[in-house]
Amino acid sequence: MLKIENLHVAYGGIQALRGISMEVPDGKIVTLIGANGAGKSTTLRTITGLVKAVSGSVQWNGEELLGKPIDRIISAGIAMSPEGRRVFPDLTVLENLKLGAYLRRNKAEIAKDLQWVYELFPRLKERDWQAAGTLSGGEQQMLAVGRALMSRPKLLLMDEPSLGLAPLVVQDIFSIIGEINRQGVTILLIEQNANMALKIADLAYVLETGNITMSGTGAELLADERVKEAYLGKHKS
């Protein structure tokens, strides 16, 4: 269980997060929706130690994460698939995936997880020799997720996995997110495609200018008139 309590984060004089509290229960998909600049990416970057909090608490299975070095957070079982994919363009698909396992030492386990990633993403196996920079946007997104999975996380943080992708590719990505979750990985998903995110989520939160303004099950928020108007367009279900 990831538990965030009264988390405040500021950049210079700007309050990015204003005392948010939320939970990500084990085995669930939790989504955080909101407009650009609401503080969604800041939330993920604070969990992983990339951004320092002003105050509050981020606990993972009862252990405080704030102030811990990034490698300790990864070793505790948390990985992130970042916004914009951030693959290493000049390295091959295989080299990118192996970098995801850089803190691990057991070569047999790493080889086993490589096969797991290839089962989830057969296209990566077909292209394991190819430079990551020559892949399509959808393939690069699959590689970013696959690389995060190579650390064998218990909690996967996903920042805008559908950004800039064609609708059919988005369907594929969301199917794979569901499959990863079914195989035992807890997921915290940030996504501008609120419709897809709420359909897949067990729990959901709405973040507006650094405050959580609504929460509920994915189905509850999908049916809420305020969410429909703000994030789904009035005519979408």
Rank of each mutant, 00 (worst) to 15 (best):
residue 3 K to F: 03
residue 11 Y to K: 03
residue 13 G to A: 13
residue 15 Q to D: 14
residue 15 Q to E: 14
residue 15 Q to L: 13
residue 18 R to V: 03
residue 21 S to Y: 14
residue 21 S to V: 11
residue 22 M to F: 11
residue 22 M to C: 12
residue 25 P to V: 07
residue 26 D to L: 11
residue 26 D to T: 11
residue 27 G to E: 10
residue 27 G to N: 10
residue 31 T to V: 12
residue 35 A to L: 12
residue 36 N to H: 11
residue 37 G to W: 12
residue 38 A to W: 05
residue 40 K to F: 02
residue 44 L to E: 04
residue 48 T to P: 02
residue 48 T to Q: 04
residue 50 L to R: 14
residue 52 K to V: 13
residue 58 V to D: 07
residue 64 E to L: 03
residue 64 E to N: 02
residue 65 L to A: 05
residue 65 L to V: 07
residue 66 L to G: 08
residue 83 E to K: 08
residue 84 G to D: 10
residue 85 R to I: 03
residue 86 R to D: 00
residue 87 V to H: 03
residue 90 D to I: 00
residue 92 T to N: 00
residue 92 T to M: 00
residue 95 E to L: 00
residue 98 K to Q: 14
residue 104 R to Q: 06
residue 105 R to K: 15
residue 105 R to W: 01
residue 106 N to C: 06
residue 109 E to R: 07
residue 111 A to T: 03
residue 112 K to E: 14
residue 115 Q to N: 14
residue 122 P to M: 12
residue 124 L to Q: 06
residue 130 Q to T: 12
residue 140 Q to M: 10
residue 141 Q to S: 06
residue 143 L to Q: 02
residue 144 A to P: 07
residue 146 G to Q: 06
residue 147 R to I: 00
residue 148 A to E: 08
residue 152 R to W: 00
residue 157 L to S: 05
residue 158 M to L: 15
residue 162 S to C: 02
residue 165 L to A: 09
residue 167 P to K: 11
residue 169 V to W: 10
residue 175 S to I: 08
residue 175 S to D: 15
residue 177 I to C: 06
residue 178 G to V: 02
residue 180 I to V: 13
residue 182 R to N: 03
residue 183 Q to H: 13
residue 183 Q to R: 15
residue 185 V to D: 05
residue 185 V to F: 04
residue 186 T to L: 08
residue 187 I to N: 04
residue 193 N to R: 11
residue 196 M to L: 12
residue 196 M to H: 10
residue 199 K to T: 01
residue 200 I to K: 13
residue 202 D to Y: 13
residue 203 L to T: 07
residue 207 L to K: 02
residue 208 E to N: 14
residue 208 E to L: 04
residue 212 I to C: 09
residue 213 T to M: 05
residue 215 S to H: 15
residue 216 G to I: 11
residue 217 T to R: 01
residue 218 G to R: 06
residue 221 L to H: 04
residue 224 D to W: 05
residue 227 V to C: 02
residue 228 K to F: 04
residue 229 E to S: 14
residue 229 E to A: 13
residue 230 A to K: 06
residue 230 A to I: 13
residue 232 L to R: 03
residue 232 L to M: 07
residue 233 G to E: 12
residue 234 K to W: 13
residue 234 K to T: 11
residue 237 S to W: 14
